[in-house]
Design a protein around this nucleic acid. Sequence first.
DNA 1: GTCCGGTCCT
DNA 2: AGGACGGGAC
Length: 203
Amino acid sequence: MLRDRYGPSGWWPGETPLEIAVGAVLTQNTAWGNVEKAIALLQEHSMLDVQRIHSARPETLASLIRPSGYYNLKAVRLKNLVQVIMELSAGNVDAFFNRDLEDLRSVLLGVNGIGKETADSICCYAAGKIIFVVDAYTRRILSRHGMMEEPSDYETIRHLFEATLPRDLAVYKDLHAYLVFVGKDFCRKGKPKCESCPLKGWA
DNA sequence: GTCCGGTCCT
DNA sequence: AGGACGGGAC
């Protein structure tokens, strides 16, 4: 239903794996529009770079990513992320992502400030690994359609999708993107627009 | 005033 | 379990 409605999603927005990973951290509990401003500022200051982020003062980084909110917290989180890229791959982003999914995921989860959703977003969209990303929209949509016992564990929901979906990276990328589209535009927290929702009639 | 593509700490 | 982090858009 969602593919018919939306077509290829083109997700994740971002030109490079590093930009995608940075975006994944910056968008934590934050509207994407604000993240775009922050990423644009990083680019304008040539700061979308592992070495630059690594050597930047947290306050400098924070001032650039200010529009994305939680800027002091996220500045440290970005530095934590590039720190592990420096340590494990000498700052080589491609090399860092070129490891087994299990390995990459556990390394990312070991970074302070990167939880499951952020780790899986990076694995899927920056590293191209087949892993399904669960977020607040996913939970809300499943819940409202009576497809989920509440509260459901992150891993339980992830495995629910992974047990059913074809092992196709494009499908994984697109479905999560579609759920975000539906979550933003229809299955909103406040006033859901069920009548015009693409998932009207689904369960 | 509410909500946002969470996560960590107490 | 509850609180902190926070600017920007509607």
